[in-house]
Amino acid sequence: MKVIFGVEKLKLQKKKSIVAIGVFDGVHRGHQAIIETIVKDAHDLKVQSVVVTFEPHPLEILVPGAHLPILTGFDLKAKLIERMGVGLLLIIKFTKKFSQMPAQAFIDEILLKKLNVIEVVVGEGFRFGKNSAGDIQLLTNYGRERGYAVKSIPLVYVGGKAISSTRIRELLERGKILEARKILGHYPKLIGKVVQGCGRGRDIGFCTANIETKDKDSVPREGVYAGFVQLNGEAKACVVNIGGCPTFNVKRPRIEIHIIGFDKNIYGNKIEIEIVENIRKQKKFKDKSSLACQIEKDIAKAKKLLCGKFTEFNKYGSIGQAKKA
């Protein structure tokens, strides 16, 4: 997938395009329905599939402080979109100036002139342009004049409720990983860089990797989880600790993983973590020996929980990735 940051860097596309537009925070099943449509239609018509998204989230600019934490930072969002087979990802920097672009100008200058669009796919209730004046009806009417088609994808429901980023966020805050997976279409993911820690894990007999991530807002609540880490395209089982370290009186939130059966230097590596299931809440132990004993139990439980899931990872490129019908 080709990634372009900024409309000014986008060259005129000679190949015709089918375009999906949205923020796509979380790339959940509702978003997947939109993106799957452009990938299929582009394949059928032998044209280019394009996702147009915005950074930062428009509400961060339009209503500073009002927007809830994002679910997926850019790196993770781009990776999830790429895995769906999209050809081009265009990231438009959302500014106050850009927010004043009229809806018709957005269509003419970006969709038609730059992307050579023949079909636009959006979600139900989509709005765009200055003062959110653009809607699906305007997009459709303008398409009749300009020669492109429009598809509106209806909301996706799970458990009788429409999927939304807010609903996913609430589930993560409650540590409801399996419920979040049903809505996301995949287990919660994090992407981060391995950085130097204090070495406490090694002191008690367990090598750990401290993860620095821009996606802290998408992290589930504090606790210990079973998951997978992807290193150089290979999935490895791990135990993930989210939060502080009560036994050592460390209150500063952090993400720390123990990769089961792995003891190599990976400082500086960017890795992807997939959180599969909660093991236990955080707890303060009386000493290092008691903590080490509990970690042994955590590892044993993680192995049991993750048993059999490697096959799913190898088949779909991601543990628990939503299967296509």
Rank of each mutant, 00 (worst) to 15 (best):
K2M: 13
F5R: 15
K9T: 09
K15R: 14
I18Q: 03
F24Q: 06
D25P: 06
H31P: 03
I35A: 10
T37D: 14
A42E: 01
D44R: 15
V50D: 11
P56T: 10
H57K: 09
L59H: 08
E60C: 12
I61H: 08
L68W: 00
P69G: 10
K77M: 05
M84Q: 08
V86L: 07
V86W: 00
I91S: 02
K93S: 14
K93T: 11
K97F: 06
A103K: 01
Q104S: 11
D108H: 07
I110W: 09
L111T: 03
L111V: 08
L112Q: 05
L112W: 00
L115S: 06
V117G: 01
G123H: 01
G123V: 07
E124F: 12
G129R: 01
G134T: 01
L139I: 06
Y142G: 10
G143Y: 00
G143Q: 07
R146T: 01
G147N: 09
Y148T: 01
Y157E: 15
A162D: 03
A162G: 14
R167D: 08
R169G: 10
E173D: 03
L178P: 00
R181T: 12
K182Y: 00
I183Q: 08
G185R: 07
P188S: 05
K193A: 10
V194A: 12
V194D: 08
Q196W: 00
C198D: 12
G201V: 05
G201E: 02
G201L: 04
R202K: 15
I204C: 04
T208I: 01
T213V: 03
T213R: 05
D217V: 01
V224C: 01
V229C: 13
G233N: 04
E234F: 00
A235I: 02
A237P: 11
C238P: 06
V240L: 03
I242K: 07
G244M: 05
I255K: 03
I259A: 14
I260Q: 07
D263G: 05
I266G: 13
I266E: 13
I266R: 10
I271T: 11
I275Q: 04
V276Q: 10
V276C: 11
K281R: 13
Q282I: 04
K283A: 06
K286A: 10
K288L: 11
L291I: 05
A302P: 14
K304N: 13
C307G: 08
I319T: 15
G320P: 03
A322T: 02
K324W: 00
K324H: 09
